[in-house]
């Protein structure tokens, strides 16, 4: 290093800054997410109507070819003694909670991916394996995924599940809003089978109106809150309830999009690569000055 002279330094530095200036243009196209489709679909879940029959769980397993254990029996209501979470073999589960208004009518809550409007998983995924589609669905692409599980860290609802017990090709498992069925103009499997119409499938903006209308007509039945309307910037799945959502294990979340400040930080650091290049130039300058000083001292 010490033998390197000043002219070499300058020569290479000039070449370098010239080539560095040409970099930003190629990377400048910031990956702005596609604008949300106004007609994106959603599902309104009315927890006051759900009876906990768990037909949706069975239909979901069938639609996604998931293993149906011999112990799986939708008539077994003992299962409600424990709170369950969606996992790699069940993309949706129903939990039951006591109803303070009527002890004989417990509240049943179906849990699955909320299909956020600004999904943290889409923003976080290292290889962009998640996609927010026009119809509102957030899906996972197994051909890209490297299994880093950062989506699980990022998801505010703790939904993505991982097949820990597979040595080869473990998958991230989560509700895909029956993306394939929807492209064949079929309803999501859970919506189709629901016998009490606790699940309403439709355009998200229409569902919000329906939800507001229901609250207005039956104020004694519902609390005046639509969960998912504003949570983490809005979700495709919306919930109505007769009691506080925090009692039903819904996380208390802000209205900022789930990726939060992460994207602003990232875009700040990498604003067209200017900060890194500026730092590079600064360090280069410091190095040059110090070397010159040093070589002058030696003379």
């Amino acid at each position: 290093m010490a033998t390197q002279n000043r002219r070499d330094f300058l020569k290479t530095a000039t070449f370098l800054s010239a080539s560095a200036l040409s970099i930003p243009t190629t990377h400048a196209k910031a990956s702005e997410p596609e604008a949300l489709n106004e007609n994106r679909m959603g599902v309104l879940v009315d927890t006051t109507v759900c009876i906990g029959c768990r037909n949706c769980e069975a239909a979901c397993k069938e639609a996604h070819n998931l293993p149906m254990e011999t112990s799986f029996n939708i008539n077994n209501r003992d299962i409600f003694k424990l709170k369950r979470r969606p996992d790699e073999t069940s993309l949706t589960v129903v939990n039951e909670y006591p109803n303070p208004k009527n002890k004989l009518l417990p509240t049943d809550v179906k849990v699955q991916c909320m299909h956020c409007d600004h999904p943290a998983c889409v923003s976080a995924c290292i290889v962009g394996a998640f996609t927010k589609h026009k119809n509102g669905a957030v899906t996972w692409d197994g051909s890209k995924c490297i299994g880093c599980r950062y989506c699980m860290v990022a998801c505010p609802f703790q939904i993505p599940a991982f097949e820990y017990n597979k040595a080869i090709q473990p998958r991230i498992m989560k509700c895909d809003f029956c993306f394939e069925r929807q492209s064949e103009n079929k309803l999501p499997a859970c919506v189709e089978i629901c016998p009490t119409e606790a699940l309403t499938f439709g355009k998200r903006k229409d569902l919000l109106e329906i939800a507001r209308d229901r609250i207005k007509r039956r104020p004694e039945r519902y609390i005046n809150y639509i969960y998912g309307e504003h949570e983490v910037g809005g979700t495709s799945w919306l919930y109505l309830a007769g009691q506080k959502f925090s009692n039903l294990d819904f996380p208390v979340l802000g209205t900022e999009p789930a990726p939060g400040v992460t994207e602003s930080i990232q875009h700040g650091i990498f604003a067209y690569f200017i900060p890194p290049i500026a730092l590079y130039a600064l360090l280069g300058g410091v190095m040059w000055i110090n070397r010159r000083k040093n070589s002058e001292e030696e003379k």
């Binding site: 990956s31 923003s123 976080a124 290292i126 290889v127 890209k144 299994g147 950062y150 994207e263």
Partner: peptide, 15 residues
């Protein structure tokens, strides 16, 4: 698939 980030880019991801 550790090499995937080389070809599948996601600029919003700090990872």
């Amino acid at each position: 698939y550790i090499w995937h980030p080389l070809i599948y880019w996601n600029g919003t991801s700090p990872l």
